[in-house]
């Protein structure tokens, strides 16, 4: 098992009802697996934002230990101590 930390930003925190949580996950769990799990266990409004058409919503912004997660990293296994930051679609300046 691994332990990771998930942080929710912007309106995602309100949708899931917390700003952060620690999770114990099976070895080999990937970011895609994580988002799927959160979507299944979260309320419907949260699920709609993070999961779409059987995959993580492409508008979701995901950081793994301050590194932007692109499509190539979605299947990379998570490791104990990882911090995952989740943002809804957001952009600007």
């Amino acid at each position: 098992m691994i332990t990771i930390h998930v942080r929710y930003f912007n309106f995602l925190a309100a949708y899931i009802g917390q700003k952060s949580q620690s999770l114990e996950l099976p070895d080999g769990f990937t970011i895609t697996d994580l988002i799927h799990k959160l979507a299944q266990e979260g309320p419907p409004a949260f699920r709609e934002i993070v999961w779409r058409e059987d995959q993580p919503n492409p508008h979701l912004r995901i950081f793994q230990n301050d590194t932007l997660v692109d499509n190539n990293r979605m299947k990379t296994p998570l490791a104990t101590g990882d911090t995952i930051m989740l943002f809804p679609a957001i952009s600007g300046g």
């Binding site: 930003f9 912007n10 309106f11 919503n57 508008h59 912004r61 950081f63 301050d66 590194t67 932007l68 930051m85 943002f87 809804p88 679609a89 957001i90 952009s91 600007g92 300046g93």
Partner: peptide, 23 residues
């Protein structure tokens, strides 16, 4: 639009947290 809710709720200040991990 998918971006509507975040911009409406937080405006551009919502970007602070996003810009942090981007560096």
């Amino acid at each position: 639009n998918p971006f509507y809710r975040s911009v409406h709720t937080y405006g551009t200040p919502g970007l602070v947290a996003l810009m942090q991990p981007i560096g």
